[in-house]
Design a protein around this nucleic acid. Structure first.
Length: 884
RNA sequence: GCCCAGGUGGCGGAAUUGGCAGACGCGCUGGCUUCAGGUGCCAGUGUUGGAAACGACGUGCCGGUUCGAGUCCGGCCCUGGGCACCA
């Protein structure tokens, strides 16, 4: 390797820091650009190579924008509350604050070693009191506007984690973090009324420059339009209200279903059915999502004994209760139209209920009984005076009719639920609320205290931040959380009365909901940020981060932003103008198979992609079908025997299969950026990560590729150290201007991979010149390279006699006239097949082109003597002779 | 099941949006340099037939539009991601 990255890189990192090169400042007459990375959770295992991918991309954009004259805000911080540090505290007794501080230190050092142009003076840490203060301040805004409320609802309780999880944190009945089982259990909770903003959250997505994430959020919000209709319950004056998006199928409603947890379920059921219904409802309440989804493929349910009257047909229909109807959505009850709803169809078949078609493609009754639900739109039948209407017309007419008759109304519904905001853990922001206490004596010394949770009182703004108490024991498990044990902290007296603090804490999402705002003015002690700072930088122009945050973080943050907007704290309805998700980087590992006998003794080794090995679906692992032997997958990452371009296991010589999958310690395929920086340098890592492929795509890490990138940087170094010339030949000059053009365009469109290859091509050209490379060309190359490989660019820029820093130079311009060719080589086709090439002026007319083509012997041979049917000539593109 | 994204050499990936498929990089082969090479340089490298000139085939599969399709249209298969009783 030609240059010593170990001395070059730290030198320039120190220079940037000492000279405050990247401190964000606004200047008169310069446009602003706010480029934001999703800040990391500082985990104990440090940075992995996935982090620098997005960070390098944004750093290139930031450096490029600065060179274009923008004032750039490019900050970094720490999302430092979270379970791992608390788990560590439970295991070792180390305070999470200490663990967190250590991890932050590691992360900061690692990020600095990669040469990112962050304004480190704006670093934020969500766990610091001066940050927590404003998180709590926002909570008070939510609380005071009625958007934060308590409820006692069945929640996702995870016994292993000892906490409640949001719906979004539960995947297939297991916790998103850790994969522990989750059960339903009623616990007192704080919730945030995100549903109040459902409409705005969906509608305001429209103008944003976001990828598919917009659609994901829309689906998550799940807006639907329909009608609410009341069905009178037979015998009594009760009415059962249902929500439907297909009011046009009212005539086909042959039964009803009420959710087991609906508050009317036990009221309406007949006395004979009461016991059975009660048993069913209790069982349904205990069912976790896992049981409901994986075991609940077969529809279950039970007849309540009650009937209701279809308000249109006047016919009586039975009312069932079944857990396929959710209590929390719509009205918690449905009219079932088995002919036109898949779920109702399945239920009707299982319980032998009537299936009456009221829609068909042509408006005629089907000849045969339906074998599946017809859920499409069509033309109405069996619907009285509405027969013959198209579904869409029927819908609007029937709703008008329902409203006129007073039996129903137009209604919009959302899948989105209110956000479960409390966690029964220690390492989070305390919720700044307290409650009155009835108590004889001092509750801090064990006197029994009766806490009135009905009357929450907000902590006064002047008392913020409300900080966490010190604890001996961080174990969770109590539904009130570990803070309930900090009696001295929990109970306090005011005006002679006792009060108890809220012992739940906020979820990790809280701090990340607004950190982009604190970067604006991180040291402000009197305001969350100054108006001046806000006006200087907001909104965020580019937000980069993983697609795994497409819904949760990005929806929560938008919700808080809208609350702050309505409170007059921020001035834009949306915080993030453009959003980009970098693709995951996969690790590579090498697999072979070991055939084992029943005792686990190894019998034989097989190639890692051996055809006679298939996954064992029943027992897990693998099996060899031809012999029935059990097979184990074995993984190898060191001591690989490479021969003929293939990987082999050194002992047996079997071929290793190369497997790309998410990096994990278990698989041993984690690449540590520190190692890469030490061996190849930060510039190589940065350029490699950009060169791997399109930014947003999932890409496998291949360490070999690093060497190629490093060779490129060495060539840049080599060419800059050559004797340079004053004059440029035309070809070099043309290529220079085209390179400048393409690299600039590629950065703007975030096509960094092709930007790198363009610079490689130009560098290869300069290296290959027989004459001294032109100084101008080399200098412009360095300017182009500088956002990608800033350390090397600085070093060589100085070498060429310029004062530092290259990051303060202007982005080079290009001459558009030099980027187009007057004369181009165009392919000559005969019957669509390329048979030759000829250089032609772009403006050449067809006759000239034809004459030139006929000079090419091969073309002439194929054309002469045949009937020329047609000539297709696109100047500057192609000439095609059609002959027969 | 539904909704997105994507299938191009041995590998990562290019392809000005309908006009020379495989840029750039890795790997591999041969050569030069070297006491030596896990270095550097030069040449070659889609498959196939051929000694060669040259020819045929080739962008997941089937069909279509077009002078011309990786690119457009219809159908299907596969991979990755998201959602999943939301009435």
């Amino acid at each position: 390797m030609a240059y010593d990255h170990l001395s070059v890189e730290p030198r320039w990192q120190k220079y940037w820091e000492d000279n405050e090169c990247f401190v964000a400042k606004r200047r008169e007459g310069h446009p602003k650009y706010y480029v934001l990375d999703m800040f990391p959770y500082p985990s104990g295992s440090g940075l992995h190579v996935g982090h620098p991918e997005g960070y390098t991309a944004t750093d290139i954009v930031a450096r490029h924008k600065r060179m274009q004259g923008y004032d750039v805000l490019h900050p970094m911080g720490w999302d430092a509350f979270g379970l791992p540090a608390e788990q560590h505290a439970i295991n070792t007794g180390t305070h999470p604050r200490e663990t967190t501080a250590n991890n932050v230190k590691t992360f900061r050092t690692q990020l600095k070693s990669l040469g990112f142009s962050y304004d480190w003076s704006r670093e934020v840490d969500t766990t610091e009191p001066k940050y927590v203060r404003w998180t709590q301040w926002i909570f008070l805004k939510l609380f005071n506007s009625g958007l934060a409320f308590q409820s006692e609802i069945p929640v996702n309780w995870c016994p292993v984690l000892g906490t409640v999880l949001a719906n979004e944190e539960v995947i297939d009945g297991l916790s998103e973090r850790g994969g522990h089982p989750v059960v339903r259990q009623p616990v007192r909770q704080w919730q945030l009324k995100i549903t109040e903003y459902a409409d705005q959250l969906a509608a305001d997505l429209e103008p944003l420059n976001w990828p598919d994430t917009k659609q994901k959020q829309r689906e998550w919000i799940g807006r639907s339009e329909g009608a609410e209709v009341e069905f009178p319950v037979v015998g009594g004056d009760k009415k059962l209200k249902v929500y439907t998006t297909r009011p046009d199928t009212l005539f086909g409603a042959t039964y009803m279903v009420i959710a087991p947890d609906h508050k009317m379920t036990l009221d309406i059921c007949s006395s004979e059915q009461r016991e059975e219904v009660k048993t069913y409802a209790e069982a349904a309440a205990r069912k976790s999502d896992l049981e409901r989804t994986s075991l609940g493929k077969e529809k279950s349910g039970i007849f309540t004994g009650a009937h209701a009257t279809n308000p249109l047909t006047g016919k009586e229909v039975p009312i069932y209760t079944a857990d396929y109807v959710l209590g929390a959505y719509g009205t918690g009850a449905i009219m079932a139209v088995p002919a036109h709803d898949t779920r109702d169809f399945e239920f009707a078949q299982a319980f032998d209920l009537a299936i009456v078609p009221v829609v068909s493609a042509d408006g005629k009754a089907p000849d045969e009984p339906l074998t599946e639900a017809f859920a499409d739109h069509g033309i109405a039948l069996n619907s009285g005076k509405f027969d013959g209407l198209k579904t869409a017309d029927f819908k609007s007419q029937i709703i008008d009719y329902l409203e006129a008759e007073g039996i129903g109304c137009r209604k919009v519904n959302y899948k989105l639920r209110d956000w479960l905001f409390s966690r029964q853990r220690y390492w989070g922001e305390p919720i700044p609320v307290y409650f009155p206490v009835e108590c004889d004596g001092d509750p801090r010394t064990g006197a029994e205290a009766k806490i009135d949770y009905q009357t929450p009182i907000a902590v006064d703004e002047s008392e913020l931040p409300l900080l966490l108490p010190e604890l001996e024991d961080y174990h969770p498990g109590d539904p009130q959380g570990p803070l309930s044990r900090a009696l001295e902290w929990r109970y306090f007296q005011k005006d002679g009365k006792w009060f108890a603090r809220e012992t739940n804490t906020m979820p990790q999402w809280a701090g990340s909901c607004w950190y982009y705002l604190r970067y604006l003015d991180p040291q402000n002690e009197t305001e969350i940020f100054s108006e001046e700072a806000y006006d200087a930088w907001m909104p965020v122009d580019l937000y980069m981060g993983g697609a795994e945050h497409a819904v949760l973080h990005l929806l929560y943050a938008r919700f808080w932003h809208k609350v702050l907007f309505d409170a007059g704290v921020v001035k834009h309805a949306e915080p993030f103008t453009q959003l980009v998700h970098q693709g995951m980087i996969l690790g590579q590992s090498h697999r072979y198979y070991a055939v084992v006998d029943d005792d686990g003794k190894e019998l034989e080794r097989l190639d890692g992609d051996h055809e006679d090995v298939v996954p064992d679906k029943e027992q897990g692992g693998f099996v060899r079908p031809s012999t029935g032997h059990k097979v184990e997958a074995r993984w190898l990452n060191d001591n690989i025997d490479w021969k003929g371009g293939e990987a082999h296991e050194p002992e047996s010589g079997v071929k290793l299969a190369i497997i790309s999958e998410k990096m994990s310690k278990a698989r041993g395929n984690v690449v540590n950026p520190d190692d890469v920086v030490a061996e190849y340098g930060a510039d190589s890592l940065r350029v490699y990560e950009m060169f791997m492929g399109p930014l947003e795509q999932v890409k496998p890490w291949q360490t070999n590729g690093l060497a190629g990138v490093r060779r490129f940087l060495d060539k840049v170094d080599k060419v800059a150290r050559k004797e340079l010339g004053a004059d440029s030949d035309d070809e070099t000059n043309k290529l220079l201007h085209r390179t400048v053009k393409k690299v600039g365009e590629d950065i703007e469109q975030m096509r960094f991979n092709t930007a790198v290859s363009t610079m490689m091509i130009f560098t290869n050209h300069l290296i290959g010149l027989k004459t001294p490379p032109p100084k101008e060309a080399v200098e412009k190359l360095l300017l182009l390279v500088s956002p990608f490989a800033p350390h090397l660019a600085e070093e060589l820029w100085e070498l060429l006699g310029h004062p530092p820093s290259i990051s303060a130079e202007s982005w080079p311009s290009f001459d558009a006239a030099l980027c187009v060719d007057d004369v181009v080589e165009i392919p000559l086709q005969v019957n669509g097949k390329v048979r030759g090439r000829v250089s032609l002026a772009k403006t050449a007319d067809e006759a000239t082109a034809k004459a030139a083509a006929m000079d090419i012997e091969k073309v002439r041979a194929l054309v002469e003597g045949k009937t020329l049917r047609k000539i297709v000539y696109v100047p500057g593109r192609i000439l095609n002779f059609i002959v027969s």
